[in-house]
């Protein structure tokens, strides 16, 4: 396999079946992980308080809910709060919004991915996992268009294959990997010092 691209952040989106899949991915990351990880998991608004605790059980990195104006820092797993869209601003800080649902979802994976693509350009990896909607497909295509890397869970290994298939239809160049291989791929990613797309302050 080609060596992994220099990366500053990983964005992950999942829907139905995502709790287990994301848990498995996070457990593959080493304690001193040099990248920021940002997760959108579709979940009913009232069940969301438990997400951080649930993912923390599987993860050696600190897991936090993303807050408005937080810096997208390496070595931390940020979870989108329930019922808010999560965006990354050009200066690589989070912002939140309660505007209308996108693809019937809030948070929407597309919104995170599209704004992350503009903030991180080619130093971004986007991962689409199991799910029953098409959310994330447009966002993943945007990541690829900005020079980043798209990764899609192979539909046969996904609990629900609608989301991976939609992502592949929109982003043909994405790497298709089974869940375990995605964990290994993410664990090997490293940032490099010279940045072709510096953050805009």
């Amino acid at each position: 396999m080609t060596s992994p691209p220099a990366t500053d952040a990983v964005v992950i989106g999942a829907s139905a079946g995502g709790l287990a899949a994301i848990g498995a991915l996070l457990s593959a990351l080493p304690a001193a992980y040099p990248l920021a990880v940002v997760v959108v998991q579709h979940i009913p608004a009232d069940a969301a308080d438990t997400l951080v605790r649930r993912f923390q059980r599987h993860c050696r990195l600190p897991v936090r809910e993303a807050e408005d104006k937080d810096t997208v820092e390496p070595g931390i797993v940020f979870i989108a709060p329930a019922d808010y869209h999560l965006m990354i601003e050009p200066d690589r800080r989070f912002s939140l919004s309660r505007e209308e649902r996108v693809n019937f979802s809030r948070p929407s994976i597309d919104i995170l991915f599209e704004t992350a693509a503009e903030a991180f350009c080619n130093r971004l990896v986007g991962v689409i996992l199991t799910g029953a909607s098409a959310d994330g497909a447009t966002g993943l295509a945007k990541i690829a268009a900005m020079g980043g890397t798209g990764v899609v869970q192979s539909p046969e290994t996904a609990e629900v294959d609608v989301m991976p298939r939609a992502a592949l239809a929109a982003c043909a160049g994405a790497r298709v990997l089974p869940l375990a291989a995605i964990g290994a791929f993410l664990a090997r990613l490293i940032p490099e010092s010279e940045a072709p797309c510096p953050p805009i302050s």
Binding site: M87, I88, S95, S97, E99, T115
Partner: peptide, 9 residues
């Protein structure tokens, strides 16, 4: 205003 937000709108 937060620019990612304004841009989307």
């Amino acid at each position: 205003y937060a620019s990612a937000h304004i841009k989307r709108r």
